[in-house]
Design a protein around this nucleic acid. Structure first.
Lengths: 195, 195, 195, 195
DNA sequence: GATGAATGAGTGTTCATTCAT
DNA sequence: CATGAATGAACACTCATTCAT
């Protein structure tokens, strides 16, 4: 059986990820593969084997958060109330980015830029779910005319950026989210969903 | 007299700035001093003399755009209509960032981070003008409660970020600006200023 | 019985050789064992088991061509006409090198340099046959005085080198071969063998 | 004055060249810039400043020998006797390559492959001189028909290769040169120039 | 003031070889 | 026998910064 070997490999992979996560948590998003290898007590080659590029590592780091985000987006897309669905969706994307900076970088980049397959898939899934939410809100006349799916994505990334440059991001998110929501809501629709 | 020398120095400084500006215009924000020196036909030491750090050069590059922004902010602060003033202020800051990427970087960074004196001064002036606008809008009940001066700055930087990651930023600014304005407006105030 | 295992091993060996051959045919003589293993769909260890060094693989790749060369050398050594024999020998060695670059590398290297047993054997056989041809040509007074067996080998390798750096080696071989033959012929013997 | 500074730079350049030359003399033609820097007691950057690529260093190492070769080629081209001229030319090119292995590599490579300007110039000059010699020998009916300028170059490089793989190259050159000369001489012209 | 050569730490990447499974 | 993960030395190249002239 190759289970044990694979277990070793998996353990190394995890060590690399853990090390990288620690660096990200310290605010270092540079993800230098040499540095990470050294800190993880692992050969450079090992890091390169698992993550051939900085991008691959970045996406691996974002993977869990992205998966969780998809779950929340799924739930949001099932909300009966179109506006509530949009609210939930945008809040999820926003909080996801603040919780996991790597997810912010992944979402702020053009999808076709060296992206690995799983990330491309996830982005597609997120887009599909978001399209549903968007369409329902649009049909309900609750979305500001002219806003596309891409616009929503850019705007929520921008809102995350705004929170990130604040001194205490966590204290600001909800307020900034409220601004975003009020901003994307169709003018004349009021600020809260119809009861 | 050192006049001649100063003239030479000034010419060198201008050459460096022009070269750096050209690079920025080409989308290269890295501002590598060696590279700039070579292209400017000037010694590295000369660049270092005028701009001891990347930050110093960045702020010098942003200076003109920042000055122009201050003028517009001044005008905005004098607008009779509080909401129109806010609109003008935010549009100016937003467009300034898109026109001059260095200004975006300057404004998106914490003020006390290696900032040079002129930039610190300008930021103070901008803050003062914005405070005026903010206060008037607040007094008129037109600003979303809870938003501070800093919040406005972060949000407008976030909006610039959103535009920047769009495929065609210029086509998106006005829409994103509308979103921002609607977002920061006090709920229940409608989307246009009272006549 | 280990027959089945041996069959597997032989198949792996063949796959490695085929892959390596393909690379050589594409002009890549670097013979990187990792690369070959990956392309052959085989573990690196397997490649190492069969070919412990780059040299071992190189010689294995050259083996068939070397064997064919020995056949031709045999025939040449049986030619009644001493000069014709020499001609045939040198042409065979020359063409062999151009057809199979690995053979060129094998023949251009000192025999005792990490050579594997089969190659050492083959080199010995080739030397023996060449010695025969050489001796007969010498006895017939047709070989330039002073030329040893080694000299002939070096010169034919040099001629192969000359052809290789030409733009269209195949168009040049015969001419270069004629130069070589005229060069090694004893001065005053004319350019064609006595009738 | 910048003389002293330049002197320093020149000294460093010379140190690098001397170090590289020593390595070449030891038979190491790999010319690894890092290694050379370390041995020369100089920063890597210094080596890169003077020689941006391995090729640049190679050609710098070959420069003197190439210049000397050009002198000899010039002399050869002025020889009254066409055949003597050819003899002198080929001997010079051959000995030049054996004395300076870097020259062999330079001459054995396609001229347009990353070559620096001076080398391109020198190759042009050598070709011009060789063309003269070739033409005169051809007109005198002394050159084997079909041989072009390029052929001569390839053949002399091949001869150098032959000598290089011999155990005692120096003892073999003259013999190999004789072979080359007899080979390129028009058949039926005898082995020595007309008196 | 200006110059630009020099530095060398830093970063990215490859690859031959080993060895536990 | 086969596998392929792991290793880490080795190599290529960059660039911010210093400093002698």
């Amino acid at each position: 059986m190759t289970t044990t070997l694979r277990a070793d490999a998996a353990r190394n992979r995890d060590r690399v990820l853990a090390t990288a996560r620690a660096l990200v948590a310290e605010g270092d998003l540079s993800l230098q593969l040499n540095d990470i290898a050294r800190r993880a007590g692992v050969g450079v080659g090992t890091v390169y084997r698992h993550f051939p590029t900085r991008r691959a590592l970045l996406e691996a780091l974002a993977a869990d958060a992205f998966a969780a985000l998809l779950d929340q987006a799924q739930a949001a897309s099932r909300d009966d109330d179109p506006w509530a669905g949009l609210q939930r969706l945008l809040r999820s994307i926003l909080l996801g980015q603040l919780t996991e900076p790597t997810l912010a970088e992944v979402l702020s980049t053009s999808p076709d830029e060296d992206a690995t397959a799983p990330t491309t898939t996830r982005r597609g899934e997120l887009a599909a779910l978001a399209a549903t939410v968007l369409e329902r809100a649009t049909r309900a006349g609750q979305l500001r005319p002219g806003l596309t799916l891409d616009d929503l994505q850019h705007l929520v990334c921008g809102t995350a950026f705004a929170a990130r440059i604040a001194d205490a991001p966590d204290d600001r998110v909800e307020l900034y989210l409220a601004v975003l929501l009020a901003g994307v809501r169709a003018p004349g629709q009021g600020s809260s969903p119809p009861a």
